[in-house]
């Protein structure tokens, strides 16, 4: 569904990712692991078109690498970005409404809002509250729900568990598992390798802008390389 080939990502003159290739198949959950600064977020930014990149980004057979950010989102890519980036000056409901900005049918939009509110009762309770007043975990759920409001074909999740209490982390991973069983295609960026590998069908391990290992979750989970990269013990 999403194919990346020889992707180089740049931040100004700095090259953060040095030619990686990966593949996300329809209905699968693919995990992108790696330590701080490995280039995971840069890769996500290149897929959405936020960061400048060279190489191939093909989505459903179409080359997106020349398309604008907006066009890529319209093609069916949605992202829950690193740091959540909810609109804290808007209410919870307004955040969701913006998530469905491309949905023209008001009835469908209302249906989706109700659906996600029923799945996240805590958000429903705070629908008219400023999103900035939510707790970290609630904000993360809002960020994911906002992305899902777009009814994406693929969901990019950048470190959804970052900085959250273990109980909340479990909730978030349960949610991702639930999305997966509903057939959602997911690219999951995580530092929490243990949890991510439980969910993922296939995983890539990044370090210093390169993919240093990849394989099924089982294979990679057993590999020494993973632990070495993530703990910094070679």
């Amino acid at each position: 569904m999403l194919t990346i080939q020889d992707l180089h990502v740049f931040h100004g003159p700095i090259e953060a990712v040095h030619g990686i290739s990966l593949e996300v198949e329809q209905g699968k959950c693919i995990s992108l692991l790696g330590p701080n600064g490995a280039g995971k977020t840069s890769t996500i930014s290149a897929i959405t078109g936020i960061a400048r990149s060279t190489g191939l980004v093909r989505f459903e057979g179409r080359d997106l690498s020349r398309d604008s950010v907006e066009a890529r989102i319209a093609a069916g890519i949605a992202v829950s970005p690193e740091g959540r980036r909810i609109f804290s000056n808007l209410t919870v409901l307004e955040n969701l409404t913006l998530g469905a900005a491309l949905q023209k049918d008001a009835a469908e939009k209302a249906k989706d809002t109700d659906h996600w509110f029923s799945l996240f009762p805590i958000l429903a309770e705070r629908r008219d509250q400023s999103a900035g007043t939510l707790s970290g975990g609630e904000q993360q759920m809002l960020a994911i729900a906002r992305a899902l409001m777009a009814r994406p074909k693929i969901l990019l999740l950048d470190e959804p568990s970052l900085g959250l209490a273990p109980k909340i982390v479990r909730q978030i991973f349960d949610l991702i598992a639930d999305l997966k069983t509903r057939g959602m295609t997911i690219l999951l960026v995580e530092q929490n390798a243990t949890q991510a590998l439980k969910l993922a069908d296939y995983a890539y391990l990044m370090s210093s802008g390169r993919i240093v290992a990849h394989g099924t979750a089982d294979d990679l989970g057993k590999s020494d390389k993973l632990m070495a990269e993530l703990t910094g013990v070679a």
Binding site: T48, I50, S68, V69, E70, I73, A74, V79, P81, R85, F87, S88, N89, L90, E94, T97, L98, G99, A101, L102, R146, A150
Partner: peptide, 26 residues
């Protein structure tokens, strides 16, 4: 408050890039 474009203007004051990531044309 009531239109998507209006919400986008308010949201853009905080995080324009994130507004683009919802698919609204900058």
């Amino acid at each position: 408050r009531r239109t998507v474009l209006g919400l986008a203007v308010r949201a853009a004051s905080l995080d324009f890039e994130m507004v683009r990531l919802t698919g609204i044309r900058a």
